[in-house]
């Protein structure tokens, strides 16, 4: 067994140090630009001001009516509600469309009609239907996440190595066996790509939905920051949106690496 010992891959030094240097430089430059007045503080807040507000917002409901984690929690609920609904509908639909002609024939035309409409364009209708509460935003976010799920799952199945399908056929595998045993595992890397892309789409649409129709959430906080002329609140909202999105992305990446051990090294 020793002959097949795992190879240890080391991260090059440059890739360890340079990211820290680059991030530090970015924030220091930003601070200097605002502090020295090159950019007036009515247009952009310095990182230190934003950090102050960050800690303040954990205990202070003013001026936007909710604490920071309350905003974040509302956004996360909306985003994940829409995201998981998009996965639950989009992935099976896309996988089925990739392999079964009936599914492709029925769903593809409708999907192609709806696909080019940006989810934000649905907001007015959504307000008619659901008001400005949670369900409406989940609907918008769901629409946004659905498209990448369907497309990636569909393409993933279509990319299944045809020789593998032939191989399974000669063993007498049924269509369903091939779908389950070959097409779905083959599509997994694309599906995991979809998890990331869909999350980005959901998160983007979340902010859009909250900018237009909300009374709480990180997007709402950004809007309030604009209305109250508080750039630090805008920046804090943006930062929180980015941070939360990145954090979820890391988790998905971890899960992906573990599940796809055999496909990617």
């Amino acid at each position: 067994m020793t002959a097949y010992r795992e190879v240890v891959v080391r991260t090059p030094l440059a890739l360890k140090i340079l990211p820290i240097v680059s991030v530090a430089t970015f924030f220091i430059a930003w601070e200097i630009v605002v502090r020295t007045g090159v950019v007036p503080d009515t247009m952009l807040a310095a990182p230190t001001t934003v950090t102050q507000l960050l800690f303040d917002k954990f205990t202070n409901m003013d001026p936007d009516g909710a604490l920071l984690h309350q905003h974040a929690w509302v956004s996360i609920q909306e985003a994940f509600g829409g995201y998981f609904l998009a996965l639950a509908v989009g992935l099976p639909l896309g996988l089925a469309m990739g392999w079964f002609n009936v599914a492709e024939g029925l769903a593809r035309p409708i999907f192609e009609i709806i696909r080019p409409i940006p989810p934000v364009a649905w907001i007015p209708l959504t307000i008619f239907w659901f008001g400005i509460g949670l369900p409406g935003k989940i609907f918008i976010i769901w629409l946004g996440g659905l498209v990448p799920c369907v497309i990636n799952a569909y393409v993933g199945v279509k990319m299944t190595n045809p020789t593998l399908i032939q191989m399974a056929r000669t063993y007498g595998a049924s269509d369903w066996q091939i779908f389950r045993q070959l097409c779905i595992p083959s599509a997994l890397p694309m599906v995991f790509g979809a998890l990331q892309i869909a999350l980005a789409c959901c998160w983007t649409n979340l902010v859009a939905a909250e900018l237009l129709a909300a009374d709480a959430g990180l997007g709402f906080m950004i809007t309030m920051g604009r209305r109250l002329a508080m750039p630090e609140m805008v920046v804090l909202g943006m930062f929180m949106v980015g941070l939360t999105g990145a954090f979820i992305g890391v988790i998905i990446d971890r899960v992906e690496k573990r599940l796809l051990a055999g496909i990617r090294r």
């Binding site: 020789t163 032939q166 191989m167 056929r169 000669t170 063993y171 007498g172 049924s174």
Partner: peptide, 10 residues
């Protein structure tokens, strides 16, 4: 292929 055991090495 469903009834007989056919193998194919590609």
């Amino acid at each position: 292929p469903k009834r007989h055991n056919i193998s194919y090495v590609f």
